[in-house]
Design a protein around this nucleic acid. Structure first.
Length: 547
RNA sequence: GGCCUGUUGGUGAAGUGGUUUAACACAUAGCCCUCUCAAGGCUACACACAUGGGUCCGAAUCCCAUACAGGCUACCA
């Protein structure tokens, strides 16, 4: 049996040969600086904020170079696959405006000329390349049982040797074709391993796009390339897919940096040109004194769905991600307040090699600023989208009183220095409930300095009888001063501060009474705007209700 | 155990051997403004270049050790 027949004996017939596959996926016709990137998650259905970060970079870099960004699903570990895993990922990312030019578009369908984009559908391709390697004596069947592997590992630990299958531990690496065939005919199970040509004592130099120059020992591990279920391992699939799909830049988590010697070798052995790599540090979280990775199980904010549930605008999350990705982005945004993310050019050399702590305060601050710059209709639309899903009672009111609600959102908005107090839409109910009579059920009034009920009644009735006027803000406030004067309160704060004993209180006390009796809150946005929106009858009704 | 990577104030960071007595932003505190709150303005704050050696006229920046943190060391990705 020659090696070609041997390869076929081991892996069976494939639909196409390696050379045919090479011909099927020609170079892409793109500008020389165009980046081809991919987001390649496992279909667990869960999108981690770190994955959002990586996919955002994939999308952004491809877009800004007129390249291609595609979605490939790495489902070679069948245990990790969940139902609707792919469509959940697509939906969560689409929420953040991350869409793909090619790749999976549902749990089963894809688009694009370099597919299939589901690794489990690419089995034939991997086998074709594995057979080529076997033919060239660069891969071989390995008959080590799990028990033997365990023994080797324990022994290596005992004598403090490097762990793995290499050198003399690679027991079957030099088995002859005849011996292997005989074992297989005897029913022995096998997997396919790389016959690593590397020497651990050699150093290799690797240039990471964001980390720069790194030095490693050459790989000499005979790693598994085809598992017993016939599917490839991550490493093998990575080399073949990113070659065939012509990925130019692989952006991935830094847990992969130690695989670099292997990956470099794999590309070399397969005769491929390796892509460039950007290894991204994970987002960290501080817990007490220790810092750890943001955890899917422990941290709600690790899931991108969290931001949707909290009503943090997706664009604000993206703005935050940009500040983490390129620290000069914030300064750019300050200089260009109306600038869009797409107008900013992300650069490699501004990316950090060390892990950042995820800073929720900063995110909420960015979100608050972002929301404050939106116009009234945009805020209204976001409020509608949020409440539609998470607060149907409020949704009904916002819909029923649409014009009024838009005006409510416009209080101290659409001006040079807009009000900044709403950071996420889950705060929307405590923010404006008292603006709707249907929701208005005050429980406690906190009047601060004026607490005598008769005095409060006097203030309210005098105000409504003689001084209510919302023609414009100056008139409105002047009238409140007049009211203060009439009832013995200081209308001028400086005079009050000079001689507080001459007055019952000051104009701020009057305004507080008017505010609290109207809204039951001592802190609200501009009171004039609220009164103007309410109109005299509703103000009067609230005051009557209070008394 | 072995190998790799990282370490600038509470946080994110600027910085690539010489206008660095180390930007800027968030957080925090105070004052001002003010009908409340938010915002805004001003100011303060923070023992900030992990530690110790070395190279150099000069180091946060280059080199070496140590410490700490993270990662990898699977027929998981």
């Amino acid at each position: 049996m020659n090696r070609k027949e041997f390869a076929e004996f081991l892996l069976g017939k494939t639909e196409h040969t390696k050379d045919e596959y090479e011909a099927m996926y020609p170079e892409r016709n793109l500008d020389s600086n165009a980046m081809v990137t991919r987001f390649a998650p496992s279909p667990t259905g869960f999108v981690h904020i770190g994955s959002l970060f990586v996919s955002f970079l994939d999308r952004k870099y491809a877009s800004q170079t007129n390249g291609v960004c595609y979605l490939r699903i790495e489902d070679t570990d069948t245990k990790r696959t969940v139902d609707n895993g792919v469509s959940n990922i697509i939906r969560d990312l689409a929420n953040f405006d991350i869409n793909f030019d090619e790749g999976m578009i549902s749990d089963t369908e894809d688009k694009g000329n370099y597919g299939p984009y589901l690794q489990s559908s690419r089995e034939d391709i991997y086998k074709a390349y594995a057979k080529d390697l076997i033919e060239k004596d660069l891969a071989y069947p390995c008959f080590l049982s799990p028990e033997e592997m365990e023994d080797i590992r324990n022994m290596q630990e005992d004598i403090k040797a490097r762990i793995g299958i290499y050198g003399k531990y690679a027991k079957y690496r030099n088995l002859s074709v005849e011996e292997a065939v005989e074992k297989i005919n005897n029913g022995e199970k096998y997997i396919i391993r790389l016959k690593s040509p590397g020497n651990f004592d050699n150093k290799i130099i690797f240039e990471d796009v964001i980390r720069g120059r790194m030095e490693f020992n050459e790989n000499d591990l005979d790693i598994v390339i085809i598992k017993s279920d016939g599917l490839p391992t991550y490493h093998f699939a990575h080399a073949i897919d990113d070659h065939l799909m012509h990925t130019t830049h692989v952006i991935r988590g830094d847990e992969w940096v130690s695989s670099i010697p292997l990956h470099v070798q794999l590309f070399d052995v397969l005769g491929f040109k390796a892509p460039k790599y950007l290894h991204i540090s994970p987002l960290m979280k501080k817990e007490g004194e220790t810092v750890r990775k943001l955890s899917k199980r422990k941290d709600a904010e690790a899931a991108v769905s969290y931001y949707h549930e909290e009503g943090i605008p997706t664009y604000a999350v993206l703005l935050y991600i940009m500040t983490v990705a390129n620290s000069n982005f914030e300064a750019w945004l300050d200089a260009n307040p109306n600038g869009k993310i797409e107008d900013f050019e992300l650069t490699f050399n501004k990316m950090s090699a060390s892990g950042s702590l995820f800073d929720m305060d900063k995110l909420l601050n960015i979100s608050k600023n972002y929301i404050s710059r939106l116009n009234k209709n945009e805020v209204y639309d976001m409020a509608i989208n949020y409440t539609k899903e998470y607060d149907s009672e409020l949704y009904d009111l916002l819909t029923k009183y649409k014009d009024y609600s838009i005006d409510v959102f416009n209080i101290e908005r659409e001006q040079a220095k807009p009000r900044k107090d709403l950071a996420k839409f889950s705060e929307i109910r405590p923010y404006l409930w008292y603006m709707y009579d249907e929701l208005y059920e005050p429980e406690t009034y906190e009047f601060m300095n004026v607490s005598d009920k008769d005095e409060i009644s006097r203030i309210l009735s005098t105000y409504m009888d003689k001084y209510y006027d919302v023609t414009d803000k100056d008139t409105w406030f002047n009238n409140i001063k007049l009211l203060a004067d009439e009832l013995g309160y200081a209308s001028n704060m400086k005079e009050y501060k000079a001689n507080p004993e001459n007055f019952k209180g000051n104009v701020a006390d009057i305004a507080t009474v008017l505010r609290v009796a109207l809204t039951s809150k001592s802190q609200t946005p501009d009171l004039y705007e609220i009164m103007r929106l309410f109109g005299k009858d509703r103000v009067l009704n609230r005051y009557k209700k209070f008394i």
